[in-house]
Structure formats: structure tokens, C-alpha cells
Lab assay of single mutants.
Amino acid sequence: KKSYVLIKVKNPKTKETHTIVVPEENLEEVLKALASQPNVKVVDIERFP
């Protein structure tokens, strides 16, 4: 059974918020990819039960 993680990201320029759902096993690479985006800020990470 896969567990999923909900990542909320915000664009500081446009103030838009997006929610991305990723499998927990991919969380680290997704966070690394997001960290390299200049106008993306991770605001929240939630685990799915």
C-alpha cells in the first residue's frame, strides 16, 4: 500500500497556492526539484492516512 503526501506550494510573486499530491517514496526528489524553483515556496506538507 502506497502512502501519499500532500505538498502545498505558494508562488510569492502571484500569491497563488497549489497543492501537489506525490507518493511518499518520491517526496525527497520532488522537494529537491521544488527547492530549485526560484518562485516556489513550500508552505505545508501533510501525510495521507
Score class of each variant (00 low, 15 high):
9 V>M: 06
43 V>D: 03
40 V>C: 10
17 T>C: 13
39 N>Q: 07
33 A>D: 07
11 N>A: 02
5 V>G: 01
1 K>S: 10
20 I>H: 02
25 E>Q: 06
24 E>W: 10
40 V>K: 04
41 K>M: 14
31 L>D: 00
30 V>C: 07
28 E>F: 11
41 K>A: 08
3 S>A: 12
48 F>C: 14
36 S>K: 13
22 V>G: 00
4 Y>K: 06
13 K>E: 08
29 E>R: 12
35 A>Y: 10
39 N>L: 05
20 I>L: 10
18 H>K: 09
11 N>P: 01
5 V>M: 05
24 E>G: 04
42 V>H: 01
24 E>R: 06
31 L>P: 00
4 Y>V: 07
31 L>A: 01
10 K>E: 15
7 I>A: 00
17 T>I: 12
35 A>P: 01
27 L>Q: 02
28 E>W: 12
22 V>D: 00
1 K>D: 11
45 I>V: 07
38 P>S: 11
38 P>L: 07
9 V>G: 00
7 I>G: 00
2 K>D: 13
37 Q>S: 11
10 K>Q: 14
43 V>T: 06
35 A>I: 07
43 V>G: 02
35 A>S: 09
39 N>M: 06
10 K>M: 15
46 E>W: 06
10 K>T: 14
45 I>R: 01
26 N>F: 14
18 H>F: 15
44 D>L: 15
40 V>F: 12
18 H>I: 13
30 V>A: 06
44 D>R: 13
29 E>Y: 08
24 E>C: 09
4 Y>Q: 04
48 F>N: 06
5 V>I: 05
41 K>P: 02
9 V>L: 12
21 V>M: 14
23 P>F: 11
7 I>S: 00
32 K>Q: 09
36 S>I: 07
41 K>F: 08
9 V>W: 10
8 K>M: 11
23 P>H: 09
40 V>Y: 11
6 L>Y: 11
8 K>D: 02
34 L>M: 04
33 A>V: 09
3 S>I: 12
44 D>H: 15
11 N>G: 04
14 T>D: 03
12 P>I: 15
2 K>W: 03
22 V>F: 02
35 A>C: 06
10 K>R: 13
26 N>E: 11
28 E>Q: 09
17 T>Y: 12
34 L>N: 00
15 K>P: 03
14 T>L: 03
44 D>P: 02
5 V>T: 02
16 E>S: 08
39 N>G: 10
25 E>V: 05
37 Q>H: 12
37 Q>N: 14
13 K>G: 06
5 V>K: 01
16 E>R: 12
1 K>E: 13
33 A>M: 13
15 K>S: 11
47 R>M: 07
35 A>R: 11
1 K>W: 04
37 Q>Y: 13
40 V>D: 02
46 E>Y: 08
35 A>T: 08
39 N>C: 07
37 Q>A: 07
13 K>H: 13
23 P>K: 10
6 L>E: 14
32 K>A: 11
46 E>D: 07
11 N>E: 02
